[in-house]
């Protein structure tokens, strides 16, 4: 009996140790950026493709470069509020350095070592190249500061235990791409899977909110709770690649309905990118495997 108790205690200690290790924030080694210098003009392209402003711009404002935050994102786990990521040192990220920024974007870890909730799509951004990250950081420092404080998330137990996000990341966060593609589709894959994080809405989630990669881009309930996000797979979406590229440029579907909802913000971003990038995304979308 005492032997059993000892074993049970040992098992508990090991489990706790493994748990602590698994849920520990994983940080980047800043040395990997040492040889890179940020190009703010290139960073603007990254910023646009990554859709940063679409979520972080001031709620109800048409000024997409005022990154005050405040937009709410309702989910099954609570309501998240986009934080202030403007360069204000008090309320925003003005006192961060590149390493803090890299840990936030690539690892989902705050400068204080807390996990961010994956409403922030770092599970996609973790695939961002180091050069793009450094350029993005250079660009974001050129934007106006906002002194409006971030609103705390409204998340209940047990999801309010940030450490538990570490276990979630251990299970579901990967810097590997979902789709294998030939070289000519790599730019499109990078835009879709890393920067533009399309799957966050277009792919369904499992019970704990992780993307169901077996149903990649298969469409999903609207995270807002109303309506659905359409599937992009070829068995469901019969648009040509040119149709997709024109939609991303103009917001017009092939039947000349016009884009709405959060996708309107996505199109606003893609309209600013190059035709090559829109075509790259379209080519990736047309290469998606059918699901049904």
């Amino acid at each position: 009996m005492r032997m059993f108790l000892k074993l049970a205690i040992l098992a508990a200690v090991v489990a706790a140790g493994v748990g602590l290790w698994v849920t520990m924030p994983d940080r980047v080694d800043a040395a990997r950026f040492a040889s890179l210098s940020g190009d703010a003009a290139q960073g603007e392209v990254v910023f646009t493709a990554a859709g940063c402003a679409s979520c972080h711009h001031a709620k109800d404002s048409d000024d997409k470069l005022n990154l005050t935050g405040g937009q709410e994102f309702v989910s099954d786990f609570g309501t998240f509020y986009a934080p202030n990521i403007s360069p204000d040192p008090e309320t925003g990220i003005g006192d961060w350095d590149l390493e803090s920024f890299a840990n936030a974007v690539l690892r989902g870890v705050s400068p204080q070592g807390q996990h961010y909730y994956p409403a922030f799509p770092y599970t996609a951004y973790t695939k961002m190249t180091d050069e793009d990250l450094v350029d993005l950081w250079a660009y974001m420092q050129t934007l106006p500061a906002s002194d409006v404080a971030s609103k705390p998330h409204d998340v209940g137990f047990p999801f309010n235990i940030r450490r538990s996000v570490g276990g979630w990341k251990f299970l579901f966060m990967s810097d590997a791409y979902v789709m294998d593609v030939p070289a000519e589709l790599e730019r499109g894959r990078y835009l879709v899977e890393a920067l533009a994080h399309c799957a966050e809405c277009h792919t369904p989630r499992n019970a704990v909110g992780a993307l169901d990669t077996a149903r990649w881009m298969g469409g999903a309930p609207n995270p807002s709770g109303r309506g659905t996000i359409p599937p992009l797979t070829p068995d469901e979406l019969d648009w040509s690649a040119a149709d997709v590229a024109y939609y991303l440029e103009s917001g017009f579907t092939p039947s000349f309905d016009a884009v709405g909802g959060h996708m309107a913000a996505v199109v606003e971003n893609f309209a600013k990118l190059s035709a090559e990038d829109r075509n790259a995304v379209a080519a990736y979308v047309k290469a998606l495997p059918a699901l049904n």
């Binding site: 807002s224 103009s250 917001g251 017009f252 709405g260 909802g261 309107a264 606003e268 309209a271």
Partner: peptide
């Protein structure tokens, strides 16, 4: 001139048309 037309449609759909 298609761009501004699309922009005008989007501006309204963004705020005033419910998702499907």
């Amino acid at each position: 001139n298609m761009g501004p037309l699309g922009g005008a449609c989007k501006a309204c759909h963004d705020d005033y048309r419910a998702p499907e």
